[in-house]
C-alpha cells in the first residue's frame, strides 16, 4: 500500500506530445516514386480547410523525417531536397488556418498543434545542425559538384517554422 502511494507521488504520468512519424519510403526504394505520386493525389482527397491543415502538416512531418534520415546517412543533396519540400508544406499552413477561421471554424486546437509541431521540427533541425558539416560539396560522378550550405539551410528552415508559428498564433489571437 505504502509503495503504491509512493509510486503515485513519485512516478509522473507520461504524456505523448507531438510525435513525428516513422520514416516512409526513401529515395532508392522502388515504391518511393509511387509514394510521392500518392502524396500529390492525396491533396484532392483532403478537401476542406481542416483536412488541408492535416494534409500539409502530415507532409511537412514526413519530409522532415525523410530529410533527417537522409542526413544521418550523409545523403546531403537528397536531404536538402526533402527539407525544401518540408519547408514548402509547412509554409502552406497559415493560409488554411486563416481560411478555416474565415469560415468561422474554431481552429485553436489545430493552431496549438502546429505551434507544437514547429517546436518539435525546430528541435530536430537544431540537432541536425549540430551533427552535420556546415558546408558540403556534393560531387556526383560525371556531373558538376553542388555546394551545400547545410548550416544556413537548417537555420533558414528553423526560422521559417518559428515565423509560421508566430503568424498562426497572431491569426488565432485576432
Amino acid at each position: 500500500m505504502l509503495i503504491a502511494y509512493c509510486l503515485l507521488f513519485i512516478v509522473r504520468p507520461a504524456f505523448a506530445g507531438y510525435v513525428l512519424p516513422y520514416p516512409s519510403y526513401m529515395p532508392g526504394s522502388k515504391l518511393y516514386r509511387v509514394s510521392r505520386i500518392v502524396d500529390q493525389l492525396k491533396k484532392y482527397w483532403y478537401f476542406g480547410n481542416i483536412a488541408q491543415i492535416k494534409y500539409h502538416l502530415g507532409l511537412a512531418d514526413k519530409y522532415l523525417v525523410e530529410a533527417k534520415t537522409l542526413m544521418e546517412y550523409k545523403q546531403y543533396l537528397l536531404a536538402t531536397d526533402a527539407l525544401f519540400r518540408s519547408d514548402k508544406e509547412f509554409l502552406q499552413l497559415p493560409k488554411y488556418v486563416g481560411d478555416a477561421k474565415k469560415e468561422k471554424k474554431d481552429v485553436s486546437a489545430f493552431a496549438a498543434l502546429i505551434i507544437e509541431a514547429a517546436e518539435i521540427h525546430a528541435g530536430v533541425l537544431s540537432i541536425l545542425a549540430s551533427t552535420v558539416p556546415e558546408q558540403f560539396i556534393w560531387t556526383p560522378e560525371k556531373e558538376k559538384p553542388t555546394e551545400l550550405n547545410l548550416s544556413v539551410l537548417l537555420r533558414a528552415s528553423q526560422e521559417l517554422r518559428s515565423r509560421v508559428a508566430r503568424e498562426i498564433l497572431a491569426n488565432v489571437k485576432q
Binding site: 482527397w45 483532403y46 478537401f47 476542406g48 480547410n49 481542416i50 483536412a51 492535416k54 469560415e103 468561422k104 471554424k105 474554431d106 485553436s108 486546437a109 489545430f110
Partner: peptide
C-alpha cells in the same frame, strides 16, 4: 456546410 472530407475530419474537430 463545413465542406470538409467526413472521412478525415471528425465532427469534434470543429469544436464550435
Amino acid at each position: 456546410t463545413h465542406r470538409e472530407n467526413p472521412y478525415l475530419v471528425m465532427p469534434i474537430e470543429i469544436p464550435n
